[in-house]
Simulated assay, not measured.
Amino acid sequence: MLGLKRGAVALYPHEKAWETEAQATMARLRHILGPVAVEMAHVGSTAIPTIQAKPIIDIAVAVDDFDALLAYEKQLRAAGFYYRPNAQAGVRGQLLFASGSYYDGSGDLQTHFIHIVRTGSVDWQNYILFRDYLCTHPDTAGEYERLKLALAAQLPTDSGREDYVQGKQSFIRSVLRRALSDMLLGKMVDILIDRPLGSHHPKHTDMIYPVNYGYVPYIFSADGEEADVYLLGVSQPVEKYKGRVIAVIHRLDDVEDKWIAAPTGVTFPPDEIEKAVNFQEQYFQHEIEMLDPNGDQ
């Protein structure tokens, strides 16, 4: 089955045909867009084989330039992809194209959503992170399915889709935080230091950084900003550093997490990490997740 009446909320068991259709759709898009489409992926629930989904195919397309993409609007429309300039007014940094008989005027079905995002953006990262985490964590995927089924049972009417979407957001945010932890813990990262050891906080000038503090370019936290990192074990100010992520600080009363990096082969116990970051983390409820020394990361 493919397609759902606009505004309706209904879930169906996964079908292998959805992946086939997604691949065919991406081939059509690549033929039209050529090199303008930098990356492309089947995302959303129809890309997760273990859960039920609305039978609408979601494709994410990463481009460097929205205007370059919109230059192909006529060709996309001729191929059945209709630009919806007001459909995602609340979603910053994305464009939406949609397919189905509702859009060509021959019926009332929506079959495809094409999400246009910027290359290397938090939107692209999150589409891929969420899909991959659920594909590799079946228990979490099952939680998501149960949540979706409960919401669909509560909101089955035409007016329920927006509430259905909003009802998933808290779960999606929590999964993205876990997925980012999985992605970074134990990995080597390039850190750009924008607040070196001994510098003052740009707003709270009485706060002096006792460690180097920066961010990982092109890796985004839940607040949409690049992931912040405390660099421990480096006793002089630096502008950039390649270090290993050894821990994550989960802020329980904030949307973002903070990462702890150190030189290769160097680690710190939780109490030393707590002491090193207390100058800033004392203002937040938090817990520290350490890299498992016996794990695969």
Rank of each mutant, 00 (worst) to 15 (best):
L2D: 08
L4Y: 01
G7S: 13
G7R: 04
V9T: 07
A10H: 12
W18H: 02
E19T: 09
T20W: 11
E21H: 11
A24I: 01
T25H: 04
M26P: 00
L29Y: 07
I32D: 04
P35Q: 09
P35H: 12
G44F: 09
S45I: 09
T46A: 12
I48K: 06
P49C: 08
T50E: 13
I56W: 00
V63L: 14
D64W: 11
A71K: 09
R77W: 06
A78R: 12
F81K: 06
Y83V: 10
A87L: 10
A89S: 15
V91W: 04
V91D: 04
Q94S: 05
A98K: 07
G100D: 05
Y103P: 00
Y103F: 14
Y103H: 14
G107V: 05
L109S: 07
T111R: 08
H112F: 12
H112N: 13
H115V: 09
I116A: 03
I116P: 00
S121V: 02
V122T: 13
D123V: 01
D123C: 04
Y127I: 06
I128P: 06
L129E: 01
F130T: 09
F130Q: 10
R131L: 01
D132I: 04
L134S: 07
H137S: 02
P138C: 02
P138M: 09
E143P: 01
Y144E: 14
L147I: 12
L151F: 05
P156R: 01
D158F: 12
S159E: 07
G160F: 05
R161I: 08
E162D: 15
D163Y: 06
V165T: 11
F171M: 15
S174D: 14
V175I: 15
V175H: 12
R177N: 08
R177I: 08
A179D: 10
L185R: 01
K187W: 03
M188L: 15
V189R: 11
V189Y: 02
D190F: 15
D194P: 09
P196S: 00
L197H: 09
S199R: 00
K203Q: 15
T205M: 13
M207W: 07
Y209H: 10
P210R: 05
P210S: 03
N212P: 05
G214H: 00
V216I: 14
D223K: 01
D228F: 02
L232S: 04
S235Y: 10
V238F: 02
A247R: 07
V248E: 10
V248R: 00
D254C: 00
E256L: 05
W259M: 01
W259S: 04
T264G: 15
G265P: 13
V266E: 15
P270T: 08
P270E: 14
V277W: 03
N278Y: 12
N278D: 12
Q280M: 13
Y283R: 04
Q285A: 15
H286F: 06
H286L: 03
I288N: 03
E289M: 15
E289N: 08
L291P: 12
P293H: 11
N294H: 14
